[in-house]
Amino acid sequence: MEKAQFQSRWMPYLLLAPQMVIIAIFFIWPAAEAIRASFFLEDPFFGNSTFVGLQNYTDALSASDYKRTAWFTVVFTVLVSLLSLALGMMLAVSADRVLRGQSTYKTLLMWVYAIAPPVAGLIGVMLFDQHIGPLVDFAAMFGWHLQIGVDYWDTGFAMIVVSTWKQVPYCFIFFLSGLQSIPTSVKEASAIDCQSETRRFWTITFPLLAPTTFFLLILNITYAMFETFGTIDQIVKDQPGNSPVTLVYKVFRDGFRGNDIGGSSAQSVILMIFVLLLTIVQFRLIERRIHYT
């Protein structure tokens, strides 16, 4: 790589500064504040805090439903990430193959992405409403008495469906552009060599999409873990009761609903550590196997 030449030694730092300031203000400072707050119990109005050591952590981890919440978070994150990846890829490959009216298909499939998350959540809530939801009536035709808010896994099912539905168009857009960046010459060459379309997909297209897939996998995991609490809140209608919730929803609920700043901070630090480990695993294990062109 060519070395850039700067007149002054400080120039590169100066150019980096705006980004660094943004990172410091919006990421490092809040994270540091969360770590500090996690060792205190704080009166919400005056911010008078009492140092309690690790009590917030032990209280959070020993709560009777912590294990269940953590387990649901894992199931939810894995399913939402993989389902949106698979559906996004399937739709992108299909739309890419369509010859007539291709742009119409593409636009229609991307449309959902333009829906604001709370609206998407609301639409989902209405579709799954236990009294008037059309999807509940549909499930009843197969003898499935779908009851959101009453049955644990029925509610989890609705959360997974609505969250996945929101994320599929995002994956679709990236896969579509990924597909379009595969050189025509490669596609044509493979078409001459191999007749089976399925086989061509798995041996040529899929490996060439791997960087996109890896990128989307990370984004999907982040989405499922951190950006779905609004949808979850909509589905449980602000009353989690015995419904499944994710760890981030619990952070939101205890912090912003219950005003337990210390407890909520401790839970978010636990998540921070978990995500740190996950990111290391992702980059160490998966990225090595990916070939960037």
Partner: peptide, 21 residues
């Protein structure tokens, strides 16, 4: 105090009673 969370615990446990869990 922290009664919002206490109500959450109640709602959760009542839901579990009714679901037979």
């Amino acid at each position: 105090g922290f009664y919002v969370q206490i109500r959450d615990v109640m709602n959760r446990e009542y839901g579990r009673i009714f679901a037979g869990e």
